[in-house]
Design a protein around this nucleic acid. Structure first.
Lengths: 235, 235
DNA sequence: CTGCATAGTATGGTCAGACCACACTCTGAA
DNA sequence: TTCAGAGTGTGGTCTGACCATACTATGCAG
């Protein structure tokens, strides 16, 4: 009974890169060696190296681009939400999870983040100011629905960032991403969208006001109502 | 300004499979068409198809195996924790997130799950019974440390499963997985491990007792203390 | 010397074709 | 009926090639 569950070739490279990240031999902004170089270094084919690169890519660890020079090739970025979003999205499609669970989780994370004492009060103040700007931009009647959703997402993520927990922030963003298509599909026409967006604007302002005046529990409660109400509109 | 952010070939097949999952043309246990067939269907090379397959694999949507027959090839499974674990793990290595954030998130999710009214009381009762068995198994003094950790993980995931939220369950499992190496490395020798495991056993029993007697808030509190204490041991 | 078109070079993206180990399925002999 | 062995299809890996791209170095023209 060999303990040999088929070691994949790409894992050699993957583990090597993970180790380099851990020991900070590689860090944000660095370029990875070229695929051909990695293949030679580890004694495997470029095809297998590409498997590892692809995984790092979809996980949001690196971004790749063609060409040469300092900004080409595989560069270390840090986008934890990318990988989690993709995973949630696929499992939502595969029926491994459902929308109720995602909304429930989102409420959990956002209300928690709202009630947390900010780790960095200065940053928290900046968030208050920046979200105020976002609210103004969402007031623009000319704004496309797509843009509204984008700013809306930014609003929520920004508020959650006050808690100073990148895991919660990424998961929250991922939860939202994973069901964005679903939401867009359930309110198809602009006619039914108009009354919804009016309510959303009002709710955002109330939430922001609660935050700005330091009523965190109230803000959490409003957030829960906001999210619950919105998804009740998509049924 | 073309809206052409380099459409990757593998996304063709990825989106097609995602759509088939959404419409349940593909569901749990089904086999995907062979890589060569998919390549021909979509007019791309097998290499590009393999990119998509690899992504579905690491995301925990499918498992692949060689050979022929009904259990070979790419089969739809559902392991949401796999993709999320991998993402968290890599971002932990890349310093995009840190251990404090992971522990904090884990406490959030587990205490929430503990306080939730079970969606399925019958299943909840089964969980109580099954966790009791796990606690007994963890009492075995002969148990290897590795086995202990495995059963310990199962204990926590099982308790969280009572809440009936696959997203929370998967995230919890992923958070735990992502730092398991870190934990193992910080308590290297069996000598320092022995007193720790004694406390863990006691805590597990107290948590289980609180659950079994319906004291959910007490259980949540004990869970928080349990997790906090354990990670305080790894510094 | 400066400015700029051009050739050179290295990158990831894609493709085609090959071989392997494996696991099942079919076949035919005992 | 049994079962060893050939057959077939699977993913895993490798090789080598070509492409578009983006930077870099060259060298000509002013």
């Amino acid at each position: 009974m060999p303990i040999n569950p088929a070691p994949r070739a790409y894992q050699i490279v993957l583990q090597a890169i993970e180790e380099d990240l851990r020991t900070e031999k590689l860090s944000l902004g660095d370029q990875l060696p070229g695929e051909r170089a990695l293949a030679e270094q580890h004694g495997i084919s470029r095809a297998s190296v590409r498997d590892a690169i692809r995984i790092l890519d979809v996980m949001g660890i690196i971004k790749t681009s063609t060409g040469s020079g300092p900004n080409s090739g595989a560069v270390i970025v840090s986008n934890p939400a990318a990988g989690i979003s993709q995973a949630l999205r696929l499992h939502l499609a595969a029926k491994g999870i459902n929308v109720r669970e995602i909304v429930e989780s989102r409420i959990l994370l956002e209300t928690w983040a709202a009630q947390m004492t900010p780790r960095d009060p200065i940053q928290a103040q900046q968030v208050i100011e920046r979200t105020a700007v976002l609210i103004m931009r969402m007031d623009d009647a000319q704004l496309s629905r797509e843009s509204f959703h984008r700013i809306d997402a930014e609003f929520h993520v920004l508020l959650a960032s006050m808690a100073g927990n990148a895991v919660v922030e990424s998961m929250m963003e991922s939860l939202r991403n994973s069901i964005s298509d679903y939401v867009a599909a359930s309110i198809p026409d602009d006619e039914s969208w108009q009354p919804v967006v009016k309510v959303l604007r009002r709710q955002h302002k109330a939430i922001h006001h609660a935050f700005a005046t330091g009523h965190r529990e109230r803000a959490a409660q409003l957030l829960e109502e906001h999210i619950t109400w919105f998804y009740s509109q998509t049924h």
